[in-house]
Design a binder for these strands. Structure first.
Lengths: 190, 190
DNA sequence: ACTCGATGAGACACTCATGTCTCATTCGAG
DNA sequence: CTCGAATGAGACATGAGTGTCTCATCGAGT
């Protein structure tokens, strides 16, 4: 921390602010800039010094979300091994970012047409996972991979909300999400 | 239309306004009262004459949504027959209200804790459906019925959004939603 | 101890949606 | 045709959130 004029020194603070903002906005998407600042333990002025405005903050959260999801994709080594196992690993890895993902899903709903380019990238990888499973015979082929990707996002968001509202236990996140997506509700002969 | 002082005469107009508002707000939840009025083909003043304010409008939409879902529950005779068939009938019956349902899901996300009482009623019936399926041996019992109900809402919303964004075909709504929920993505021996 | 950058608090103006009001117009009933 | 209720258009005040600014304070490095 010798030369404080270098922007990267702010990275830790910026990171912390983004984490707080993500946690707050995932719960109350309509939260005020003032509330976001308070939640991060800083003043509103400082918040504006880091992020030009609310749009910039949301954009930064988008980037953070993309980054987390891509990190989960990488960490779970999604392109390797049986698709089912890869999906399990990915959902488990993406759990910490589930709230943020849920926020971005609804937010992207608002910004119709103005989607972050990175979003398409992660979506493509997830679609690729489902397509791989279909080609290998693990997954059924009568449902388009694009829909399966959307459904996965929907289920992750739904589970994150249910946990936030206390309707389901947090520790069951991965199991409930992935089990339902993989096996459905029908009791299979297996 | 003999005595125009009777409030029920406004029912048709009110209905039309609510339909338009539902269609618009399902796409852009942040739409202005002015946009809602324009979408309904009326002036903003008239809109305010029918609904005291934005809150009142949203409440009315909530009631309309509950009403539609309950109508779908009734029409699909959800308490009768095999749970799987009942679920299929319900999803097919609720399709016209899918956009409105998606709007209310995100809206309820905002109004945390302030849920419409009718919402719990419909949720209870849907939970009952899943529980019935579990008790009859049709559905798996390792996933709580409450979560299955949430997941159903999430899938319906996700499918409604995907259709709105043109990512999937509208005619596949029922099949994709119910097939995924019932069977999951795993290719079953069946 | 000094200095400089960053911060927090607050004041301020601006924007925008909302809610209320008025007024001219229209439409239907009598 | 006349009357009255409902409507549409617009003006207006209000409130909330935002973005920008200033200034006093704090803290780390020198």
């Amino acid at each position: 921390m010798s030369h404080s004029s270098y922007g990267r020194l702010m990275a830790v603070d910026r990171e912390h602010v983004l984490r707080s903002a993500a946690a707050l906005l995932a719960r109350s998407p309509a939260a005020t800039m003032d509330e976001v600042a308070k939640a991060a333990g800083i003043g509103r002025a400082t918040l504006h010094r880091h992020f030009a405005g609310r749009d910039a903050l949301v954009r930064a959260l988008e980037s953070l979300g993309i980054q987390e999801i891509e990190a989960a994709l990488d960490a779970s080594d999604i392109e390797t091994g049986p698709a089912e196992d890869a999906l399990r690993r990915f959902v488990a890895a993406v759990e910490p970012a589930a709230g943020l993902l849920a926020f971005l899903v609804t937010e992207n709903q608002l910004f119709e047409g103005d989607v972050h380019e990175g979003w398409n990238r992660t979506d493509a990888r997830i679609c690729g996972l489902f397509r791989r499973g279909q080609e290998s015979g693990e997954f059924r082929i009568d449902l388009p991979a694009a829909w399966l990707s959307e459904a996965l996002s929907g289920l992750i968001s739904a589970c994150a909300w249910s946990i936030q509202d206390g309707r389901v236990a947090a520790r069951d996140f991965t199991r409930m999400t992935v089990e339902l997506l993989l096996g459905g509700v029908r009791r299979s002969a297996q």
